[in-house]
Structure formats: C-alpha cells, structure tokens
Design a protein around this nucleic acid. Structure first.
Length: 555
RNA sequence: CGGGGCGUGGCGCAGCCUGGUAGCGCGCACCGUUCGGGUCGGUGAGGUCGGAGGUUCAAAUCCUCUCGCCCCGACCA
C-alpha cells in the first residue's frame, strides 16, 4: 500500500529545533524517523523501507560469500560477558530478571556465538565457518547524537569468522572484505576503506569503511593511494626552517603560556617550539611527551606506542614535580618521550620557571610517532588532506581474544587442542541510510540512490479529486506496479505546491507528474530527483516499460 | 565526566528580567474558494506552561529540589 492519502508519512515544514546534522533534520522532516528518547529512535514506514533495502543488499552479499545467517538473542546472561572480560564496559546495559539473575543487553555477539561454536566445533574438519545475523545492539552511549547516526539501540549486521589458523583468518578476512566492497558499491554511497586502530585488546588487523560527509564523527587522512583513520595515520611532517641563532639562552616570556603567544612573542614559526604534553601511565608514571609546537598528540597512537593506557596528568601531579603549565620543558628526574617529527637541533621550550622559556639542543635518539597527522603533511611525497566521515562498517581480525576465554577450541590433525582463530565484521544499516542522506541531499531535500530508496517512482497526481488527471495517475500507478516497480502515489487532496515540495523532500529517484498540461500531450512529466533534472516526458501509452528503463538509468 | 543551552497546544516560537486568570505563525476540524509550486476568506477545537515542594492575596514568571532533551569536549568493545 503506497497511497500517500493513507500512508503514515508525517512530513514537517520545519526541522526540530535541536537538530544539527543535515541527515537528522531531513530524516525527521521527511517522516522517516521519530525520536522516542535520547539515542532511541523509531523508524516510520518510509524510513523502515530504506533500512530494509539496505539490509537486503547486505544479506545477498553475505550469502554470496558463503556466510550463513542465524539469530541470537539480545538479552544475554551476564556470565558470558564476565568470562570474556567485557562485563566491566561502561556502555553495557545491565539488568536483572525476577529472580535477581544478572543479564546484559548484548553490544555485539562475539560471546554468544563463540559459546555456541565452543560446543559445536570439535575438529579442524568443522572449520572454517562464516556466520552472521542482523540483531539489535544495546550500547549506553555517553553521548548519542545526530539522529540515527549514533544511538543507544540500533540494528547491526555482525558477522564472525572461525578458522583454524592465521592463514585461514586472512582468507576469511579477504572474502568478507570483498563482500563489503560489493555492499557499499551497491548502496550507491561514496565510500572507501581505511586502516584502523586495532585497539589495546590485541587483534592483528582492522579496516573501517567510511562514507565521507560533514556529519561524520571520524577524521580520515587521505592522499592518493593512502587512506587511514587519523587515530593511526602516519605521515612526513612539513619542514620548518632552523631556529635563528639570534634566539638563544634563557628567554623572558611573560604570559606566553600558549604556542601561539610564544611563537608570536619570539617571531618564530610554531615548528621551532617544543610542546610538552604531560601524561601518566600505569607502569611509567609521569612522562613528558615532547613534540613540535605545530603538532598535536594523537592519544591512540601514543597508547599503541607505549603498549598501555594513557591519561593526561592532573594539575596536582604536575605541581608535585614542579612543572608549570605553559612553561613546561624537559628536566632531570622526569621521563621524556620525543615524537618522531622532532629532528635533532635547537628548539625553544619551557624553562620550568614562570614566565621563562629556554633554547635547548635536542640530541638524536629514540623517537616514537605519536602525533596527529596534519593537513599538508605528505605520504611518499603526496600531500595529505583530512576529511570527516561516517563509519559505516568495519572488519577486524580478532585472533583468539574470545575463543580462549570461552574455550572454543578444535583438534588439529595431530590431535592437539588449539583455539579457534576469529574475525568480526560489522555493518550499520542505519548509518548507511543517514550517510546517503548526507551525501546526496540538496536544498530541497533528500536524493536517495535508487538501490535503497523507499520507492522507485513517485507519481504525483495533480488536479482535484475525480478529475481526469487523477484517473490517469491511478492507471499509471497500477501499470507501474505490474511492471515490478515500487511506486508511491500522491493521491492526496492537497495543493500542487505541497505535493511537489513533499516529493522533493522525500527524495524518491524518479518523479512522474500527471496534470492537465501533461494530459494534453498524453504524457507524464518526468524528473530525476538527483540534480533536479527534467527528463523527456513519458507517453502514458506503454509507460510501464519506458519508466522501468528510465529508472534503471538513474543513479 | 567537564562546559554551555533548552523544556509553554502536533511543529516552530514570544511571554519570564519587572508576579496579576496564556499569546503568535504553521498545522488541524468545518464552510466557501482555488486546483501546475505550501491559494484565499471565514468559523472553531486544542495547553496540568516537564514534575514536586516553597515564597506570595496571587506563580509560566521568584526560590529549592528533581526529571527530560540538545550542543561542544572527553569517551567510543
């Protein structure tokens, strides 16, 4: 049933006042989604059609590489998560049943599936296996945002691979990566995959699939032939001229507590300064990370370089060691760590004394790449740019992170017991829908790629109820449906402007208008939503075939 | 978790500072009009002012507590 007169499609003239992101505004205005609570959203009929279209594409491509669909519950015994060590995660929703037994809402399903595999897999002959499901995930996000982009409950396609060794995992990983390429190509999005952080929990490789758009929460570093999340990106820094010899010794720098102020005061580029970033780790205590003044610490790279979690030092910890914010520099008794971009030479740094800096000679020695890459850095001579993107999928080589604690093992040819080697692979259909809105919307509204659009064709019937235009539109509606097209008919008793405006807001790829004017020539006017391009009018005689062809020619 | 902001008919907002029986636009219902870009005119319905407590003759407005929501940052298996 796709008559607008009867459909639940509450369009709005104005966006919710608190909406910021384009996809948030448009998806609410177009009647696709409605908010229930913070990070909790309902999908109205038209929105759900988009979501289901994405789901179907994912399903087909998963099946095509031999991935088997099943279903696991959301409510899960806490015991499984205690065994894997994930019960302590702060985003985990916890609950109790009537007897007081502890349960959780699954954030993903590694534990549950590994538990099943532990029981089902005995021999290397049972491997490999590729399994997936679509299921609701619960994540008590500290800050849900931007409509459906980051929510506390959402549907995810999560797949898992089970192999006997790393070589097998590599094969499964490549196979899923191929399926992912096809999913995102078919979704009509602009996308790319990037190197990603594997996290502190081990894992041997990870890629994220990114859809570039302004509302994206991730920053991606891009150069021809290079793409990486800035959490892990590495690049060659831009050169800076050496510090002029005229600047030397101890410098009186009253109030120059920021890099900008200090560089301005001395009249030298920020790259001549040495920034001190105090951190604390479990095993090392306080460490002064030293990097060029024009650079910033990338805390994930730093944590990976140190092999342990990192936090910023508190003011108390600093004053205990006689360090003063704004005038900090290397000093005896404090461990230092130099960023890789700090080449040996002269730099201005804090003198560990109020209102004073000092020029020091930095020697050659151990370096760690812990800085965030900057726009204008280079990779193999090619310049980096940084853009925001939405993470729409990820693939991750888990290894034995879950199989070991959950006892998922198999016997090899020699009869020795080995842990199963796993991979995990996620896709968020809601994010694909939101990314499509972000990427293709114009000032009039959404412009869906035809592969995920809620309908293929939007037929607008002008004229008043009972008119010849309305009757012809009804006929066209029926004919197009018989030709296998998904058709939405605007049969409301509304004004022309309202109908056309709503059609543009909703963003169905092909719009056909039947009005008095078009009837005179026995045609329906056709317009492609993408670009608002007028197409040749379609003769009502034989319209279904012509429209099918037209539709296939659209993006 | 830190910072900022907002809760007043379905949506968007004013009123609050300076207390005195709640208002505007859109939408909605009905009548007429119009019928190729949110047409025009008329009539009308709809609100415990997020909640609780307090001050006061009187609270949307002042005070206390509380719940909810948004934005920036931190965080993000």
């Amino acid at each position: 049933m796709a008559r607008l007169s009867q459909l639940l499609l509450p369009t709005e003239r104005e966006a919710p006042a608190d909406a910021e992101a384009l996809s948030h505004k448009l998806m609410v205005r177009a009647g696709l989604i409605r908010q229930v609570g913070s990070g909790l959203w309902s999908w109205l009929p038209a929105g759900w059609r988009v979501h289901q279209n994405v789901v179907q594409i994912v399903r087909e491509e998963m099946d095509a590489v031999g991935c088997q669909e099943m279903l696991m519950p959301v409510v899960t015994p806490a015991e499984l998560w205690k065994r894997s060590g994930r019960h302590g995660i702060s985003e985990l929703f916890r609950l109790q049943d009537r007897r007081g037994a502890e349960l959780i809402l699954a954030m993903s399903h590694e534990e549950t599936l590994t538990f099943h595999m532990a029981g089902a897999v005995r021999s290397y002959r049972d491997l490999p296996k590729l399994i997936y499901h679509f299921q609701t995930k619960g994540r008590d996000e500290p800050r849900p945002r931007a409509g459906v982009l980051r929510t506390r409950e959402f549907i995810m396609k999560d797949a898992y691979s089970f192999d006997r060794d790393l070589a097998g995992l590599d094969e499964s990983y490549e196979r899923l990566a191929g399926a992912y390429d096809r999913v995102f190509d078919r979704s009509g999005l602009e996308w790319y995959s990037v190197e990603a952080d594997v996290g502190m929990m081990g894992g041997t490789g990870a890629h994220e699939y990114m859809a570039p758009c302004p509302a994206g929460e991730n920053d991606v570093a891009l150069a021809p032939g290079y793409a990486a999340n800035v959490e892990v990106a590495c690049a060659d820094p831009q050169a800076v001229p050496p510090l002029p010899e005229s600047v030397s010794g101890e410098l009186h720098t009253p109030g120059a507590t920021t890099i900008e102020a200090l560089a301005g005061h001395l009249g030298v580029p920020a790259g001549n300064l040495l920034k001190a970033f105090p951190i604390v780790t479990e095993s090392r205590g306080l460490v002064l990370v030293l990097l060029r003044g024009d650079h910033r610490v990338q805390e994930i790279k730093l944590a990976n370089a140190l092999g342990e979690a990192v936090r910023q030092a508190t003011p108390d910890e600093l004053s205990e060691l006689g360090l003063e914010a704004g005038f900090m520099g290397p000093r005896e008794g404090v461990e230092v760590l130099y960023d890789a971009a700090v080449t040996p030479g002269r730099y201005v740094t804090g003198a560990n004394r109020s209102d004073h800096h000092v020029v020091i000679e930095v020697p050659a020695g151990e370096r760690h790449d812990v800085r965030r890459v900057e726009e204008g850095d280079t990779v193999g001579g090619r310049t980096i740019r940084i853009e925001p993107a939405i993470e729409i999928g990820n693939i991750f080589k888990l290894g034995t992170r879950y199989s070991e604690p959950l006892g998922a093992t198999y016997l090899d040819e020699n009869g020795s017991e080995r842990p199963i080697v796993m991979g995990s692979y996620g896709i968020g259909p809601a994010r694909i829908a939101a990314a499509a809105v972000e990427q293709f919307a114009d000032e009039r509204g959404i412009s869906w790629p035809r592969s995920i659009a809620p309908w293929d064709v939007h037929v607008v019937a002008l004229g008043k109820a009972g008119s010849a235009e309305r009757a012809e539109a009804e006929k066209l509606y029926g004919g197009l449906q018989e030709a296998g097209l998904q058709v939405l008919l605007d049969d409301r008793d509304a004004g022309t402007g309202e109908k056309l405006t709503d059609a543009e807001l909703l963003g169905v790829p092909l719009r056909l208008v039947i009005g008095r004017r078009s009837l005179e020539s026995g045609t329906a006017e056709a317009q492609a939503r993408r670009g608002g391009r007028d197409l040749d009018p379609v003769a009502l005689q034989g319209a279904p075939e012509a429209v099918s062809g037209l539709w296939r020619s659209l993006p």
